[in-house]
Simulated scan of single mutants.
Amino acid sequence: MSRKRVVMLDQEEDIISYEHHIQGRFVRILVGHGAIMPDGSFSASIEQNYENIMIQDEAYDSLLSENDTKPQGVFRKEDLWEFVDIVRANIIA
């Protein structure tokens, strides 16, 4: 007798950590896949490989540039997603 298998896919992702190295002029981002829990916390999938993203060179300068919502020389966690998407698009291309 056979049965249908139910597979639970974790469809959310979050920036697990990031490191801003001022002297080296880069930001290293660690992206994990998992699920957003009812309390709003992020729970990473068990036994996954995390995605490592580097922002450096012109992208680093762009991240730290002034815009309508922030002064020059700073960034927020949510600002990093734009660069994650750019790196992913470049990998696919």
Results as ranks from 00 to 15, higher is better:
residue 1 M to E: 10
residue 1 M to N: 09
residue 2 S to F: 11
residue 4 K to G: 09
residue 5 R to N: 11
residue 7 V to L: 07
residue 7 V to P: 00
residue 9 L to E: 12
residue 9 L to Y: 12
residue 10 D to W: 02
residue 10 D to H: 05
residue 10 D to F: 00
residue 11 Q to A: 06
residue 12 E to C: 09
residue 12 E to T: 11
residue 13 E to V: 02
residue 14 D to R: 01
residue 16 I to A: 08
residue 17 S to C: 10
residue 18 Y to W: 15
residue 20 H to D: 11
residue 24 G to C: 06
residue 25 R to W: 09
residue 26 F to Q: 11
residue 28 R to E: 09
residue 29 I to R: 00
residue 30 L to H: 03
residue 33 H to Y: 11
residue 34 G to H: 02
residue 34 G to F: 02
residue 35 A to R: 09
residue 36 I to T: 12
residue 36 I to W: 03
residue 38 P to F: 06
residue 43 S to M: 08
residue 45 S to V: 06
residue 46 I to S: 02
residue 49 N to V: 12
residue 50 Y to M: 12
residue 51 E to F: 07
residue 52 N to P: 03
residue 52 N to F: 13
residue 54 M to T: 02
residue 57 D to G: 10
residue 57 D to L: 08
residue 58 E to S: 15
residue 59 A to H: 13
residue 60 Y to C: 08
residue 61 D to K: 15
residue 62 S to W: 04
residue 64 L to V: 03
residue 65 S to G: 05
residue 67 N to T: 06
residue 68 D to P: 02
residue 68 D to Q: 13
residue 70 K to Q: 05
residue 74 V to W: 03
residue 74 V to D: 05
residue 76 R to I: 01
residue 80 L to Y: 02
residue 80 L to T: 07
residue 81 W to V: 04
residue 82 E to H: 11
residue 82 E to T: 11
residue 83 F to K: 04
residue 84 V to L: 12
residue 85 D to G: 08
residue 87 V to P: 00
residue 87 V to G: 00
residue 88 R to K: 15
residue 90 N to T: 10
residue 91 I to C: 08
residue 91 I to S: 13
residue 92 I to K: 13
residue 92 I to D: 07
residue 93 A to W: 05
residue 93 A to R: 15
residue 93 A to M: 14
